[in-house]
């Protein structure tokens, strides 16, 4: 068993957790502001595609990342215009984001690269070796295999936690999700804050998607996110809309995902088609056993109009 459960397993789990955590953080900001966001999946795909496209055109993976975030913010803006601007149903509008995101990115692959379904390899985000830490005994290996994005995911988790729970702005944002009427009475610009939350959510989800395409394999495959946007959402629900429990759930899902990837290679007796489904099964079990009704922000899904 030691050739499965070892340090390389943990490293691969951290790498797999990065897109999940980034998308989850986006969902967290959105839902804490009172807007349900099931469009993370589509926004991830847009980010993954845009990142690879710009990296392909410019040869710079960093520019790719920046463009991915920009595209994600644009998605967030469209979603905000629909849901906050004209009060479209949030679930239906997000489904549109998912369908267009998946369809458009898949349709653009043959237009840009002339091949169906898969892009060529492009410049990717390299792994960095952290000076000092990488020479540690045993654990040192971890600090040579991770990319900037993996560290950024944890850094952004700290930032989001600090912003939401330790600043005045965060309090206002959460008030929009709990009781928009009260927040409005207190002078909080409810709709404006919700729009800002959507832009952040789009950017973070797209960054998550770009980390999937640019850091992990360095190319784009149609619908490569494989439901990770929804796994992030499940982690958010299971973590009861709090940063650290949700990050922990993302890591748990990724440990299972990494485990199944390694078992596929080592334990060929277990059919790998079933192993692939393991994280989704875990997500269902998690949702079945732990989620309580009262944990969601009170005003989630409810558009706000001033009377």
């Amino acid at each position: 068993m030691s050739d499965v459960l070892n340090l390389a397993w943990v490293v691969s789990a951290i790498t797999l957790a990065t897109p999940l955590i980034l998308a989850m953080l986006g969902g967290l900001i959105s839902e804490r502001s009172g807007v349900i966001n099931i469009g993370l999946e589509g926004q991830m795909l847009v980010g993954a595609f845009t990142g690879v496209l710009v990296s392909y055109l410019t040869g710079s993976a960093v520019l790719g990342l920046a463009a991915a975030v920009g595209a994600g913010v644009l998605c967030g803006l469209v979603f905000a215009a629909l849901t906050i601007g004209i009060h479209a149903d949030q679930i239906v509008a997000a489904t549109a984001v998912n369908l267009v995101g998946a369809g458009l990115t898949a349709a653009l692959v043959p237009i840009v690269w002339g091949v169906d379904g898969i892009s060529p390899e492009v410049a990717r985000i390299p792994a960095v070796s952290v000076p000092g830490l990488s020479s540690l005994p045993i654990l040192g290996d971890v600090f040579t295999k991770l990319t900037v994005l993996d560290y950024a995911a944890f850094g952004l988790a700290v930032a989001v936690w600090w912003l939401l729970f330790r600043t005045h702005l965060g309090l206002q944002l959460r008030a929009c999700g709990e009781s928009p009427e009260a927040a409005d009475t207190a002078g909080v610009p409810v709709r404006r804050l919700r729009v800002v939350a959507q832009l952040c959510a789009g950017g973070l989800a797209a960054l998550g998607g770009a980390s999937l395409s640019l850091a992990t394999i360095g190319l784009f495959v149609a619908s490569m996110s494989q439901g990770r946007g929804f796994l992030a959402l499940a982690a958010l629900l299971f973590g009861k809309w709090r940063v650290w429990p949700a990050v922990a759930v993302c890591l748990l899902f990724s440990l299972v995902d990494a485990l199944q990837l390694r078992l596929q290679i080592i334990e060929s007796a277990i059919p790998h088609e079933l192993l692939i489904a393991l994280p989704y099964l875990l997500a269902v079990l998690a949702l079945a056993t732990f989620v309580g009704r009262a944990a969601a922000p009170a005003a989630i899904g409810r558009p706000f109009t001033r009377r």
Partner: peptide, 22 residues
Amino acid sequence: SRELINVVSGLVVGFVAAQPAL
């Protein structure tokens, strides 16, 4: 690409979402 159908279905869902306001 055949994917055009999925783009159109996504756009339809988006327009339907926008419809009540319009």
